[in-house]
Nucleic acid binder design. Sequence first.
RNA 1: GUGAUUGUAGCUCAGCUGGUUAGAGCGCUGGUUUGUGGCACCAGAGGUCGCCGGUUCGAACCCGGUCUUUCACCCCA
Length: 454
Amino acid sequence: MQKPTLPKGTRDFGPVQMAKRNFILDTIKETFRLFGYEQLETPAMENLSTLTGKYGDEGDQLLFKILNSGDFLKKVTPQDIQEGASATLSKVAEKGLRYDLTVPFARYVVMNRHELTFPFKRFQIQPVWRADRPQKGRYREFYQCDADVIGTDSLLCEAEIILMIRRVFEKLGIQDYSIKLNNRKVLTGIAGVIGEAGKEGPLCVAIDKLDKIGREKVEEELLERGFGPAAIQKLAPLFESNAESISEVLNFLEDFLQASEIGLQGIKELQEMLQLLNSLGANQEHLVLDFLLARGLSYYTGAIFEVKAHGVQIGSVSGGGRYDDLTGVFGMPNMSGVGFSFGVDRIYDVMEELGLFPDQTLTGSQVLLAHFDGKAFGYALGVLSKFRAQGIRAEVYPDLTKMKKQLDYASKKGIPFVAICGDDEIKNETIAFKNLETGEQESMKVEDAINRLI
RNA sequence: GUGAUUGUAGCUCAGCUGGUUAGAGCGCUGGUUUGUGGCACCAGAGGUCGCCGGUUCGAACCCGGUCUUUCACCCCA
């Protein structure tokens, strides 16, 4: 007998966890639908050729590859093995597990471009897999909840994303959080202004760590990445700016990016988005304009979002941005899109830590039918059907056993009521309806009990 | 991929510088209670000390490997 274990970085979700997860997922789904997004699902596995080369070298390393069925060594020659893993890989594996939802989405759009009506709004909630080394808040299998619009440049999408984020968090009861905003063009402008045009990539990677490692370390890292001391000197106003409100930050940026056309364009986009938000009748609550926000994904070209919950040590719980050419790699250029994603696992952790799950997230039975003997069991079955016919979640204890055990069962499962059946009840056509929380018990007709539960 | 870290009963953890039959709390099963759970009391079951190898008269304890857990880095949700 071997004892079973889970693969590294994967988890089971028991009934209690599922009830809580569904509370989050249902809220997100409902919100996506409210804003006109339609659901898409794609296969867990994709052709490896679809996946490779989309996530950088690091990403390719983290792809789970699926060994070909049957004699997977059929095509491998001794020479392949001599040449090493990468030469052999393409001959033993032609499929891989999906790494994110964005690439499968792009693949789908390209394959179905003639059937789709653009702008196409889709949401997708499915697990993805990464052969990463697990650590806090990071798993090898986890869920992404993506919503994207493809085929429009309108900044309305960005404004609506903010509304969706706020709606979801409000419904979930998360109050203390901020939605950080930035625009990739602002970052490009910054790189230009400091005389390091085109290097916003490395600039972002380094700046992104500001919160974590501090200004000095960031400056060190910039030096290592080939930024000149003069350029780093020019960044100083950014680190030292004490602009807080959105309008203050915009003013500051307009000044700093005076010489950068693209930077000013980024500011214009931000302003327009805020204007649209205003027209939608929404305020700027929770919004923070953070011109140092730089999300890792390299394909963002416009707006960038990131959501952080306050009061907990958990990374971002949602994020996204605009990309100008998502489908280009699959031969369909110039499709602008904007998308974002909720991190369900992290939202779960935040809510757990802050105690935000409502008590009644459990969806178990409302009433248990208990019985004293075989005859009562038969009677209970009839009563059970009456409860269910009225839509009341009910179950009967399936074995003939002591009352103690049946009540114990209900207690442990959190079933609030027990309908006890015995000779007296059969004779009077009643049940003994017991409230397990208060201990009160009353003899009544099934119909009366049903009325209490509805 | 790099560097640490963890593993003892179903769960949370004790277990001294290596020394006889490895302990506690909670949980579990049964009983006190043959028409009633939670509380109390009583009794009981449950462990190849992650796995493999080594050192030793003797290993849960020391050493090596491996798997696993957690954490940091890289990167990322």
